[in-house]
Write a protein that binds this DNA or RNA. Structure first.
Lengths: 164, 164
DNA sequence: TACGATCTGTATGCATACTGTCAATATTGC
DNA sequence: GCAATATTGACAGTATGCATACAGATCGTA
């Protein structure tokens, strides 16, 4: 058993709205915003199931970005993956506690916490990578190749519009 | 100015990954799970911008479900919209504080908190409804009609697979 | 009818998220 | 060079979201 999000999962089984949809339904069950919330829920649960509890989706993204952009400050890192400055601090705290990330001050700009990934962090990242890729695959499992590409293209289009 | 999610919004403007995408990128910027997280972020920000701070997306969904399913307990309500039993308590607390929802015990089953919407709650719901519909429209703005239908269909397909 | 299994709401703890605010520090305009 | 401005990281406060645990209530069944 996965154990992740068991109650909301069981709850969803009783929701009749994702298999048959009556017309004239003004509730949240017909709103794209609600779909996205539910998909996010599904994605997080899949991540927990496949990767394990040592690393959350948020922590994986941060670790990944730190590995790819060594020497960035917290604000720059947050900018890369779309986090809030107020949130990233706690995320890095937890990664630092695990010994996967190191903070070091910058001599040039004493406001900055330069971030770098440790060898242990590299190992954790490498360990998690296959499972993370598996999550993406499972997430889009019910879609055929063409649909997957269309879905990703539309997501990017939406993001480019709203963020770009 | 909206003021909602300003820091992450500004941050996103500096992210180069949603307009041009280089090949061989193993980071989170090519992962559907990350897209969904970002879309959720966008949807919540739009909701705040259009509806205002009096009502969160979560609270709207709960209020909506209570209005449509009078006399349900908290667990039943949570099941309807895919919340956790532990989370819904706090959501209802806040709706109750605003005087939009009433809890009342059931004589038949003394475990239950029967939920009902108050006249003030009805008014708040009616007041918010147009803005909530506008959010859905803005969210899918960059997609044409055909794409919107395809996007919603794929979302439902994914949800039916993972939740149904 | 007694008893174990199940369900309900609640509490606690941890992990996001975002707003507002602040102090320290850079940067810029003049 | 110096005052106005912007940036950075931190903190408090609020709101989800989920795991776990618990007490009270109900139900199925022996």
């Amino acid at each position: 058993m996965s154990g992740v999000n068991e109650r909301a999962h069981k709850a969803a089984h009783r929701t009749p709205d994702y298999t048959s949809s009556g017309p004239g339904d003004l509730s949240v069950h017909r709103m794209p915003g609600h779909f996205i919330r539910r998909l996010q829920q599904v994605a997080v649960r899949l991540f927990g199931d496949c990767v394990g509890p040592e690393l959350t989706p948020v922590q994986y993204a941060a670790l990944c970005a730190i590995a790819q952009t060594p020497g960035a400050g917290q604000a720059a890192l947050a900018a890369l993956i779309g986090y809030d400055r107020a949130t990233i601090g706690g995320v890095i705290d937890r990664l630092e506690q695990k010994g996967w990330v190191a903070r070091s001050g910058s001599p040039e700009d004493r406001r900055l916490n330069l971030l770098s990934i440790t060898p242990d962090g590299q190992a954790a990242l490498a360990r998690a990578a296959p499972a993370v890729l598996a999550v993406q695959d499972k997430l889009l499992e019910p879609l055929d190749q063409q649909e997957r590409e269309a879905f990703e293209r539309m997501c990017l289009k939406l993001l480019a519009h709203h963020l770009g």
